[in-house]
Design a protein around this nucleic acid. Structure first.
Lengths: 232, 232
DNA sequence: CGTCGAATTGACCGCGATCAAGGAAGGTGG
DNA sequence: CCACCTTCCTTGATCGCGGTCAATTCGACG
């Protein structure tokens, strides 16, 4: 592992409050690997072996059934994924694949569980992280069940907008086909949904989004903190 | 609180491994209340005050947006709900209402967090519970995104079937209108979905379900342990 | 400049929603 | 005990959102 990677990991909510020696002990058994795009890191159904930490790049979590596939979420650096399976020592419920060249830290699951048992500070952080993950999926499911596809897109764009500090021009963080799947629609329908939002000042050219009439878009989207955040 | 309620609570995964005095300390500040059907126990957006434990009766968790409402899950006794919000000390993301007359234990959230800090056995149980909750929502979302409405109903029926120990006759645990919302469809469509499953030996009369051709139903439903359980 | 995958567009289809009406079950009051 | 009401469920007719299929177009990259 590069020495330069450690501070970024250390800074994560999950680790930042741990004592130095606990953190060192936990990270000692870990190692870093770099993967090219399109590599399947985790296959759903497999037994848990490592807690994954994405340092750099991009990873998507997806699920399959009966020949169909859907994107469940995308992971952006720096963050962990598959913590729940690690803590339960259970099978993965989702698969993971790299979308771009990615640097990933692999921490043996047993080490994570030992650290949890030995260190109550870390234990608190694990609970906070798990509760946050849980609440994100609840938000996601509410979005899916309560909104139409155009409404989902509109609110997704608004979330991107606030994530880019309110800039009126920003980039879609993934391919449109992936975005469509994440938002629960087909690529064709995403194209049409984008057109539907043009009257509300949404201009999308390639990956570049420009908002020219934020008030109208907000009025249409009806964003809600209990679905779209930002609170944890 | 009735003395007879305590053993049932004590038997929950969340509490069963705690030492006697820790458990007593946690439950001391708790109290029991009985609610008639249709009472809104929790309103989404409110601050967390109590961890709820359903002793007897039935509770649904639901969410609202823009005048629409959807059932997110139903809670059956004996189990806790809203643990994530309690641990994060955050606002509720879902509302809760009683579906039947229900006896509910209310444990002050601060007591739960104190117990978590003081008792590593309890901490482990909280993490296990949270991870399980997280994984249930993931399953639920996979079900929603990967299956058609008839497929969701078919697999739901199979889950009920295994929950009733393989009996070929069992009862729907809630009103059909609630079930429809839980499964992400309208009541009208649920009626039609039920008819669609008749050729596979599914007979539903009122709340009573009879399965007369399990092999065909299974073949149609393609149940999957990574969506339908039973593993945690 | 050629190739290949992604994105868009159009035409069409079908799943599931909506609207409207009719029946079944259970509770209430006369 | 029965008439009535409410509520839920079912059924039919119709609508429309979103999916599917197919044909271009766009764009990245070698």
């Amino acid at each position: 592992m590069r020495a330069t990677d450690v501070p970024a990991i250390r800074a994560l909510q999950l680790f930042c409050d741990m004592s130095e020696h606990r953190f060192d002990a936990l990270i000692r058994g870990a190692y870093v690997q770099v993967f090219p795009p399109g590599v399947e890191l985790i296959r759903e159904g497999d037994a848990t072996d490592f807690l994954h930490i994405l340092i750099d790049g991009s990873v998507e979590l997806f699920a399959e059934w009966n020949g169909r596939e859907t994107v469940m979420s995308t992971v952006r650096p720096v963050s962990t994924f598959i913590l729940a399976a690690t803590m339960r020592d259970a099978r993965y419920l989702m698969s993971a694949r790299t979308l771009a060249k990615s640097r990933i830290v692999l921490v043996p699951s047993t080490d994570v569980r030992h650290a949890f048992d030995a260190d109550s500070v870390f234990a608190r952080a694990v609970v906070a992280e798990l509760a946050t993950c849980y609440r994100s999926v609840i938000r996601y499911t509410k979005d899916l069940k309560l909104r139409s596809s155009v409404e989902r897109l509109a609110n997704y764009i608004l979330r991107l907008h606030s994530r880019s500090d309110g800039a009126s021009v920003f980039e879609l963080p993934m391919e449109k086909r992936k975005l469509a799947s994440l938002l629960g629609m087909t690529p064709e329908n995403l194209s049409r949904a984008i057109k539907t939002l043009q009257p509300y000042g949404v201009e999308i050219d390639g990956a570049q989004v420009t908002l020219v009439n934020l008030p109208d878009l907000v009025k249409f989207s009806k964003p809600n903190t209990l679905i779209d955040g930002p609170d944890t």
